[in-house]
Nucleic acid binder design. Structure first.
Lengths: 235, 235
DNA sequence: AAGTGGTCTAGACCACAGG
DNA sequence: CTGTGGTCTAGACCACTTC
């Protein structure tokens, strides 16, 4: 067994993570206090604290002095700041404006088969969004049709999807992997963005994971980087 | 005073950070033990531990059980993993191959004036590097001529610069901000990369900071994203 | 065996939010 | 005033490295 030497606080952490993933406490709700959790899990309060602080460092819970420890609520604001990385050159946040979208149900494309095992069908959401009054973002989004039975082709989706996912399924995006490349605009992309064919676009391929490290969403975003860019800090 | 309520461990952290920045312990060297630091700073060992763990979380020190706490050494390997974000589509690391370079001393360009206040002169390093045997990376690098008097136009620079900076000045890059856009290759870029003019390139503008949050380097990298891309994880 | 960081516990006190 | 998380301390023991 390899778990023999796993520290107590790590076990406490997974125990708490499991309960959040199981929906024992909903998004925005407070967890029991450190002492209550400690009594329940039969460890000291300091050990619970260490587990919760580690989770807070990974944005898996939010701690507020004097109030409590909360399951993160994916508000549109939070989604914008945590996972929408496009900003103006000076770092100012950008708020994409919805233009149009289409939702279809499709069989799992071969290229995404690994991410969605044992899923026959996906929703494919295709969106066009604008920045500063110009079309600038094209997104292809894939999510499980099984996990989201109610998204419906006729639905009017909100601008920020991650809060919507949480609302529909209780699952929330806690981690995302991005892969960025440059691409010349094809005929179709050029038309949708109202630019000449061959214009350089930034392509961001994202895989989003929930607390259990299962894929929630695959997304390909193409961006016209006029007054916009992808910002990230490395340590 | 705002520092009145600053926690002890935070003060300990800045005290230790200052000593590292001052070069009291060189890169790769071990700090004194927790108990030694605690005695020296007149706090408890637990408080020193909290400060050191926070620093370790930000990659400002490295802790190894049974051995000690070390000032990070910017080895080429470390530079590659921490700050070189380009990988193959499957996530495999890429090792850029040196092709050619030029070093000149120039007056501070207006666009970089904010980053290098009170500095009249900069080194400008222009490099071309390859991936998988093809030219793929073009880099324009700006560093202070005052901080690096010995870099010399005739110098043969190593492939990884961050370790070299640390070796020359003791200052090491501890944080970097990247801003990514897409760009069509100009005539000059196209020629250097042996590609048609107008090819879509990924442009990464980076500002690198040391422990004191002063700018060490400005860098503009242009990448041909054929079999390469910029990978990042968000939490 | 000695020295290091890692874990776990316990207790006292502080800062903050809310009734 | 009560309950929450935040800080600080102290001590015991464990795991790992080195001699």
């Amino acid at each position: 067994m390899k778990t023999q030497h796993r520290p107590l606080y790590a076990q406490v952490r997974t125990a708490i993570t499991d309960r959040i993933a199981d929906g024992v406490w909903a998004g925005g709700e407070a967890l029991p206090s450190e002492f209550a959790l400690a009594a329940e899990l039969d460890v000291s309060q300091g050990t619970v604290r260490k587990a919760l602080n580690a989770m807070a460092a990974d944005n898996q819970v939010e701690r507020v002095q004097g109030k409590g420890t909360y399951v993160p609520l994916h508000t549109p604001e939070r989604a914008l700041f945590h996972f929408f990385r496009f900003t103006a050159p000076d770092g100012a946040p950008l708020r994409p404006e919805p233009l149009n979208q289409a939702i279809t149900r499709i069989p799992v494309p071969r290229q995404h088969g690994d991410a969605f095992p044992n899923e026959p069908l996906l929703w494919r959401i295709s969106r066009r969004r604008g920045l500063n009054g110009r079309p600038a973002l094209l997104e292809e989004i894939y999510i499980s049709a099984e996990t989201f039975p109610d998204i419906g082709p006729e639905d009017a989706l909100p601008n920020a999807l991650y809060p919507h996912y949480q609302h529909l399924s209780g699952r929330s995006v806690s981690r995302a992997e991005d892969y960025l490349t440059a691409e010349a605009a094809s005929e179709a992309l050029a038309e949708a963005l109202e630019i000449p064919k061959g214009t350089a676009l930034l392509k961001a391929e994202r895989t989003s994971y929930d607390l259990r490290d299962t894929v929630v969403e695959k997304r390909i975003t193409r961006v016209l980087t006029e007054g916009a860019g992808y910002r990230v800090t490395l340590r």
